[in-house]
Structures are given as C-alpha cells and as structure tokens.
Design a protein around this nucleic acid. Structure first.
Lengths: 123, 123
DNA sequence: TCGGGCATGGAAAAATTTTTCACTATACAC
DNA sequence: GTGTATAGTGAAAAATTTTTCCATGCCCGA
C-alpha cells in the first residue's frame, strides 16, 4: 500500500470532489456502474480498449467503496460474484459528471486548436 | 519539457474537462484569477500557504493560456508585469468549478467518515 | 488435469505530476 | 554594491498514480 508523504488537504471542496471524480478512470467507472455494468470483469472489458488495467479498476472500486460512493454486493459461492452499485451520494455525482462531460465535448475543438498569443498592453 | 509516452486520449469530454480543471492547483488558479488576483506573484502568495510552488503555478498558467482558458496581458518595462484574465471559455468553467466545490463541501463529512461494509446477498 | 473465468492483492516498474533548486535579466531603494 | 522585486526556464529530485506481472483460491468444462 502506498503511503502519502505530503498530507492530503481536504479542507477545500474541490479537493474532495477531485478525490472522488479525478484520476484517470474514476468518473468512467461511476458512469459504467450507472449504466448497469456493475461487475469488475465487465467494467474492465468495457474499458480495456481505452487502456485501463484491471488492477486500477479494482483499486478505484475499493477506494470508491470506502468513500461510500459505491456499495458492494457479494454473492457468495464460486465463482465469487460481486456487484457494485451507486449509493445515494454516488448518484449525486451524476449531474456533475454529466456537466463535466458535456462541457468537455462542447469546448474540445476550441481548447485543442493550438497556442495563443499574449496581448501587449500599450498604455 | 516532459513528453508524454502514452498518448493522451481526449475523445471523451471528461478527459478534456480534467485537462483544464484537474491537477492539484488548476481549479484554484482559475478561481484566483476570477477573484481578481491576476499576477503570478500574487497568485503564488495567495496559495503558497497551501503548499503550491511558484513553478507549478507558472506551468499551469502557461498551459491554461495555451488552451485558451486564460489570456495574458504583458506590460512591457521593468520590472516586467503580466496579468492573466479569463477568456470566455475560461468564464464558462466557473459554474462547473462552483458546483464541484459545493458538492465537495456538502459531501465531505459523509465521504470521510470511514470505511463501509459490503452487503452479503443471501439469495 | 489443464485452461478458463471469477475477484483480489502484492510488488515492482513505468509514467506522470509536483517540488525544489539554480539561474536569466532589469530596475529600484538603500 | 547589496538586497528586493518582477516573470520565467531548465534540470533534477521527490511524490504520486497507473501499469504490468505474478499469485491466490475455487469451480466448470474439455
């Protein structure tokens, strides 16, 4: 387990939000589960074309579960089956994720068009 | 300059959004500038209590300028003065940042309360 | 019995981000 | 002259995240 060396500062709402939705794959995992893809192996199959490793998915699922964003249902027996669901707080991320996603789609072309020049103030 | 080894995938709106607002300090820098703290040295003084280095602020300002989220006004002369402002697209991040910040503040207590237990399905 | 799928975890490597430090250059105040 | 302030860069170190690889344990099908 990796231990932080610089203590996390979660005083600020943005840091808290980023802890849940930041990172390379977390928002996608939340979206997957919302879309009904609730088992780790399925989530992985959904995202491995994009390059997500199963390991990182496992780690994020655990982290999101510990935060109370997801809850986990275990079906005992073999092969062991597990399903993740959004908690109420998990659901409350959806409008935000949708808004971020839409903003990104809307602004992408502009943002990626290249470098800009500075203005020279002449006063 | 650091060169990416895994190509960035910006097909997805969330990745684009995270490119602008993710990272440890970017959202704060945008907020600072919106609050009228527009010069690098001022921004640094504002955030150094939190641990932000001047270097990372400089780098993020440049990145956000290249993306067209900020524009830069240069006042020639010495000491050289520079001011950053939000572009129209920069402004459009504000509702999102506000929403993230508010969400984080609202859910912080819940999210940080500790680990959770899985449900054992009994069917 | 061998190979597959299931969920998960340790450990190390690789990739990326952030920090720290050293440096440029100019002008002003003391 | 020395110290300060301005904005910025390069290089290396440190911190963090993500990937890769390997291992566990169990059952099912060939």
């Amino acid at each position: 387990m990796y231990e932080k060396k610089i203590p996390e500062n979660l005083d600020c709402g943005i840091s808290v939000c980023m802890k849940v939705m930041g990172g390379k794959w977390k928002a996608w995992i939340i979206e997957c589960i919302h879309d009904g893809i609730k088992r780790p192996s399925k989530i992985h199959r959904q995202m491995e074309t994009e390059g997500a490793s199963l390991r990182v998915i496992t780690m994020h699922l655990k982290e999101l579960e510990d935060l109370g964003v997801l809850y986990k249902k275990i079906y005992p027996g073999t092969p062991l089956r597990v399903e993740y669901y959004l908690t109420e707080v998990g659901m409350s991320t959806l409008p935000l994720i949708k808004a971020m996603s839409q903003w990104g789609r809307e602004k992408r072309a502009y943002l990626l068009q290249g470098e800009r020049n500075a203005y020279l103030a002449t006063n």
